[in-house]
Design a protein around this nucleic acid. Structure first.
Lengths: 88, 88, 88, 88
DNA sequence: CACTGGAAAATGCCGC
DNA sequence: GCGGCATTTTCCAGTG
């Protein structure tokens, strides 16, 4: 019997292991990117920039982008509401 | 004068802009990876797994790896301290 | 009218002030404890120990404790998931 | 021989253990205080306050206190410099 | 005295 | 929508 009915088999375990390793792989990639970011800040510092300022700039730009996206979403909702755009 | 002299030129600004955009690009990649991770958890949930458990498993494995790395660092420090290993 | 009515009174302000001072007091206590820790490291150094090693030992012990707690939490979650323990 | 000359005895180990446990104890107290702080923020939130604001208030007051201390130190140095206060 | 690494604080996110 | 958790960011002490 190679498939013991339901109950305890290792299929679920394999599936779980797959999820775990896939996530771990992605997290590793994220970690590598974070490293790269750190290096850039390091490089910027070496070039005489204050990393704090750079961080602030990036944060502000992100906020702007978020505001813009928010506004577009609002506009979108409004246009659908007045029937000038196809509903989702 | 179209460029040199010291004073206010845009070279520093260009440099700064470069740092900012590079970081933003990397952050965007990280965001995309985070999305992927979310999707995997979603998929796992759909397959009947408790995401909480998966997260815990991953965290435990990470802690193990961290502990090992830390222990090796400690051992390294200790060996240098007692002169059984060349200093950095 | 020396007190009630709704509008602008200082009750909220008093409440806020209370929160603020309570937090500040606790933070001060934390600061004092941090001082004590520093003194101990100083004393250890004077006794010829490498503070780096002591810090590492403490961190490792903490990690062990954390890992154990985490594992127990995971086990707990798992047991509830398979119905072998009463839900919270 | 109950005291093996120098070399390997457990006295150093005991001393080290003492440092470790003392630090751990203090860290535990700090952790408890941090808990208390969290509870206060929780309570404040329940009372309708924005914890972000409270944190900001505390930060500002801390900055003021630091500035004041700095100023007093400066004043102190100055007074000593002009001989209007006994040297340290 | 600048720099790195580690602790603490703050913010954001996910699940309930 | 809130509480807990994870990540990120800021701060600070130690070190060369």
């Amino acid at each position: 019997m190679t498939e013991p009915g339901v109950g305890h088999n290792s299929v679920a375990g394999d599936r779980l292991k797959s999820f775990v390793t896939r996530v771990e792989h992605l997290e590793e990639e994220k970690r590598a990117l974070a490293e790269d970011v750190k290096e850039i800040y390091s490089e910027a510092k070496g070039a005489g920039f204050d990393t704090k300022v750079i961080r602030a700039v990036i944060r502000l730009r992100k906020q702007d982008a978020d505001s813009l996206a928010e506004f577009e979403a609002l506009l979108d909702t409004y246009l659908r509401a007045i029937g000038m755009k196809a509903p989702r």
